[in-house]
Design a protein around this nucleic acid. Structure first.
Length: 947
RNA sequence: GGGCGGUUAGCUCAGUUGGUUAGAGCGCCUGCCUUACAAGCAGGAAGUCCGGGGUUCGAGUCCCUGACCGCCCACCA
């Protein structure tokens, strides 16, 4: 037996095999186009948001990848030159943290190892764990080009990072300086604003009395109260600020205060009272201590008033040597100590409970410390302006649209980007410090090799900057760097790798970015800025200048939502509600999980992942599996009597002859309509519509109706009309094969397996993924839809009536039909009486010239009005029937009143479009008839016996 | 403090530019092991479209307003 499928669908038995096959056969490799690549299809490119090398696949990844895979498979099958490019991110802080943890568990540390050994260790770690998520992707069937896999610290990409840096430096867009940055004492590095998350925490607001000095510099006996949430920062106070027009403090103008704490510089530092209208009079006491080295506002204030900055903390969040007796204390210990010391001096005016927003390190959750420190920054405004312009001009389209607003919101309020990190793992900043003149040497653009002497004084005593770049600096460059930038753009054209240039020419800008909103600013915005900035210099293949429109890193961005648990809660390890996609995949199959995500992925709405849905879609897969078994069973039976479907009739969109049986014409029309809807839905990122449309087609139309009807035509007996059987079988196989292709992007494994089975080991391509997707075809309204509706509705009515009358499931019963207004029923009905008999278990259909009366008469309006009756002596539940009819009558009455009111409204008749009025009139007439019939039926019911 | 999104059946969600009697899956009820499928088949019940006002011939859909839920951004010590 060629078609020997197991009885039940078992994803485990098929998925591993195909996953491995797709990778081995390099089916989705998209090589660098040759010079004469014309006519090979318009490129469709997606860059995979590179997972961190620390990563394991979570539900968000799976959603992200499912969406990309559906689109790329669909576009590939639709004739586009599809490229989905995978890679991983070195993820500076995150990875360094993982390895540090590992070292701690081994009783050693990063510091003990030293920089070089540590970095080597991280590389080893990366080799070991870095591919986990990619292996998981393979298992999910992601149709990426594995030949192009990259890592953000690959040499090729590192060259791009260096070139981007030196160009920006050359353009005066990179500067180094001491500013307040967010400092993580655990990671011991600066982090950007985006890497800080704020959380409300209950704390205290301390009111501290600062002694006011008299003209001689002695305590005047008066005090100025100042409110603070961080008393330990007093050690760095250089002033106290009040509002110039604050009536309460007019007498203090020009006075000085004594800092009531001992520090090393002076036991009692004297600080001025300064006036600044930035101070709000109604907060706290209206007086604010100024600590420039530990607060951004204070820093700005100090600049305005030419005050010094006193840094009181070291890299680890401990008080430094500047602060005498407090030196070496942890910041929170110091806080307690300071408060105690103040209390001892009776300088604590009060402690209030206070809830404030505290910044935490995104990675390690440690409370960040705003801290003055020397860092590298990008002057972002020029890049942001260009990036805004690109979106404003419509060169990048956001879906859902609202994210465009979010993008602009952020871009309008953008701050310079702190790009230096005091880490060891990452791209070391290409700048050299001179030990003699202290100036900085940065290589010129388009040059190779590290500088050996100071560009300013010629000294050979130069050392490279120890800081590395923010991870997002390199990932922000990916759209240009993965396609070879800047190799081909160097002055030294001999260096130009031609193949890289062709990649860039063919695949940049990428078509689409699919990602979550959580990295909209981190990554998406940065790619747009970098892309627009650097790609504009790269000419087109023909040498012409690249416009802004062609400099963007991607033409469209699709932002997907979060995957929540079934109770709409965020998944988190703490809550213990994390679903591991790999586990679910093992139980239900990748296809079912993918389909679940697709069916629930409505743009802009979070997905409450419900395993019940996945169970349902596994059932769907099983349904298809069994439809295939049915089909193969018949193909095999047909073969026994010499009927064989010509395989060359497959692989295209089936057409039905006008003389073909109704179900054949109908299912073909349905297939076309489904293909049109699915294509349109995918075009608009409506994965949910697309998935549901296919589901409805496969299950609701193909299996529930078409297969049941086609059984009648598959007659393999001696007396059978072989031509008719063959025609039916051909349509069956054609539609099924096309439907598999339609479903393939959503359920790649199942469809691959069954598609190969359809071709019985001789497929026309290596994979269903390399065949053609059913396209949109302009369809006229096909009469088959209406005819089929007539038949279906009649069958449903009969089944319903049978149930009502209590006819045993297996029994066949006769029916009587009366048609109004025509005395003859239409051909569609007469031609398909056998279908009605089979599907509704009817023994005989009798047509009645006269109207049928009685409580068991059913009615339905199609091409006129039909009534019918199932002939059966029923055991009627009079009261239940009365209740049902009463409800039905009420419903009709209500509908009728609405319709009549509207039809009686002259302005409605005047203003509403004709088809709406027409429809309403028809509906009113139908309702009226149904109402009359229902009333008659109620009337005909035996009267309830008196009790 | 700003900004954004949501509220439709018991649950999770669709519902295009306003247009005929608001849909799906799951769950629920009833009956069936009908030779592709019990992960199935057939039939059925179930909604004050968050509340209030307005525009319109017509509102789940547009406008105003209130309530509740969620998210993002933000330097008030």
């Amino acid at each position: 037996m060629p078609h020997d499928l197991p009885k039940a669908y078992d994803p485990a038995a098929i998925e591993d095999h195909w996953a491995e096959y797709w990778v081995r056969e390099k089916l989705f490799a998209q090589p660098t186009p040759s010079a004469d690549a014309a006519g090979k299809g318009e490129p469709f490119t997606i860059l995979l948001p590179p997972p961190n090398v620390t990563g394991r696949l979570h539900m968000g990844h799976m959603l992200n990848q499912t969406e990309m895979d559906i689109l790329i498979r669909w576009r590939r099958m639709s004739g586009r030159r599809a490229l989905w490019l995978p890679g991983t991110d070195h993820a500076g802080i995150a990875t360094q943290m993982m390895v540090e943890r590992q070292l701690v568990s081994e009783g050693t540390s990063r510091q003990k190892l030293g920089r070089e050994a540590f970095v080597e260790r991280v590389w080893k770690w990366r080799e070991h764990y870095g591919g986990v998520i990619l292996d998981q992707m393979k298992r999910l069937g992601a149709s990426v080009d594995w030949q192009r896999e990259y890592f953000t610290m690959d040499e090729k990409l590192s060259i791009a990072v260096r070139e981007a840096f030196v160009r920006l430096y050359e353009q005066n867009l990179i500067y180094r300086g001491a500013y307040i940055v967010n400092w993580c004492p655990r990671c011991q590095t600066a982090i950007s604003d985006l890497e800080v998350f704020h959380e409300e925490q209950s704390g205290h607001l301390w009111e501290i009395r600062y002694p006011v000095l008299d003209a001689k510099g002695k305590d005047s006996g008066k005090f100025l109260s100042v409110a603070t949430t961080r008393p330990e920062t007093m050690l760095g106070d250089v002033a106290v600020a009040i509002h110039p027009e604050d009536d309460r403090y007019q007498h203090l103008h020009g006075k000085k205060l004594r800092l009531p704490l001992r520090t090393s510089d002076q036991s009692n530092r004297v600080i001025p009272i300064i006036l600044d209208s930035w101070v709000s009079r109604d907060f706290g006491t209206g007086a604010v201590k100024v600590t420039p080295a530990h607060d951004p506002n204070d820093f700005a204030l100090a600049e305005r008033h030419s005050l010094p900055s006193i840094n009181i903390m070291d890299d680890t969040g401990h008080i430094n040597a500047e602060s005498g007796p407090y030196a070496g204390l942890d910041r929170y210990v110091a806080r307690k100590r300071v408060v105690a010391d103040l209390e001892a001096q009776n300088l604590l005016a009060g402690i209030k409970d206070y809830v404030n927003n505290i910044g935490h390190c995104d990675r390690c959750k440690t409370v960040v410390e705003p801290r003055l420190s020397t860092q590298w920054f990008i002057k972002i405004q020029p890049l942001a302006d260009k990036a805004k312009e690109a979106v404003r001009q419509g060169h990048i389209k956001f879906t859902p649209e609202m994210y465009e607003k979010t993008y602009f919101e952020w871009m309008e309020n953008i701050h310079d980007w702190c790009i230096s990190r005091q880490l060891w793992w990452g791209h070391r900043i290409p700048a050299w410090h001179c030990a003699e003149c202290y100036k900085i040497t940065v290589p010129k653009p388009n040059t190779k090799g590290d500088p050996t002497a100071c560009a300013h004084c010629g000294s050979k005593k130069i050392t490279q900057e120890t800081d590395v770049l923010d991870t997002w600096f390199s990932s922000g460059l990916l759209p240009v760097s993965v396609f070879g930038w800047p190799h081909f753009n160097t002055e030294n054209r001999a260096d130009t790798a031609l193949s890289d240039f062709r990649d860039f020419a063919a695949f940049y800008p990428t078509s689409l970015l699919v990602t979550g909103f959580d990295i909209l600013f981190f990554w998406v915005a940065r790619m747009i800025m970098f892309g627009c900035w650097f790609a504009e210099d790269v000419p087109h293949a023909d040498g012409s200048k690249r416009s802004l429109a062609d400099s963007v890193p991607f033409r469209e961005v699709y932002i997907h939502a979060l995957v929540l648990d079934a109770n709409r809660e965020k998944m988190s390890k703490v809550k213990g509600n994390v679903l591991d996609p790999i586990e679910i995949v093992k139980t239900y199959g990748t296809d079912a999980v993918r389909f679940t995500l697709a069916a629930m992925a409505s743009p802009g709405t979070d997905i409450a992942f419900n395993i019940a849905r996945t169970e349902g879609y596994r059932a769907f897969a099983n349904k298809i599996w069994n439809a295939a078994r049915f089909l193969f069973m018949n193909v095999d039976r047909a073969a026994e009597i010499g009927i064989v479907v010509d395989p060359t009739t497959l692989g295209k969109m089936p057409e039905a002859a006008t003389y073909a049986p109704l179900e054949a014409r109908w299912i073909v029309a349905e297939l076309h309509a489904t293909a049109a809807k699915v294509n349109q839905s995918l075009e608009n990122y409506r994965y949910d519509d697309a998935a549901n449309t296919i589901y409805q087609f496969f299950w609701g139309s193909f299996c529930d109706w078409y297969l049941e009807i086609v059984k009648l035509r598959l007659d393999f007996s001696e007396s059978a009309d072989k031509a008719q059987t063959k025609a039916a079988l051909t349509t069956l196989v054609q539609v099924f094969e096309a439907a598999l292709r339609l479903l393939s992007p959503f359920m790649p494994f199942l469809t691959e397996e069954l598609w190969h089975a359809v071709y019985d080991g001789n497929p026309p391509a290596k994979s269903i993924a390399l065949t053609f997707y059913p396209p949109i075809r302009q369809i006229q309204t096909d009469p088959a839809f209406g005819e089929m509706d007539l038949i279906r509705e009649l069958i449903v009515q009969i089944r319903s009536q049978r149930k009502e009358l209590g006819v045993p499931e297996k029994d066949s019963v006769p029916i009587i039909i009366h048609a109004v207004p025509m005395t003859q029923a239409p051909a569609a009905l007469l031609d398909n009486l056998n279908v009605i008999q089979k599907l509704a278990r009817v023994s005989n259909v009798q047509f009645s010239e006269s109207e049928i009366q009685g409580p068991d008469v059913f009615h339905y309006p199609y091409f006129g009005y039909y009534s019918g009756r199932v002939v059966y002596e029923r055991t009627i539940d009079v009261s239940a029937e009365r209740e049902r009819l009463t409800k039905e009558i009420a419903k009709y009455e209500k509908g009728l009143i609405t319709a009549e009111r509207q039809l009686g409204n002259e302005s409605f008749l005047a203003k509403a479009p004709a088809n709406v009025v027409e429809g309403l009139k028809k509906q009113e007439a139908e309702t009226r008839l149904l109402l009359e019939k229902a009333r008659a039926a109620l009337e005909a019911l035996p009267k309830e016996r008196e009790r």
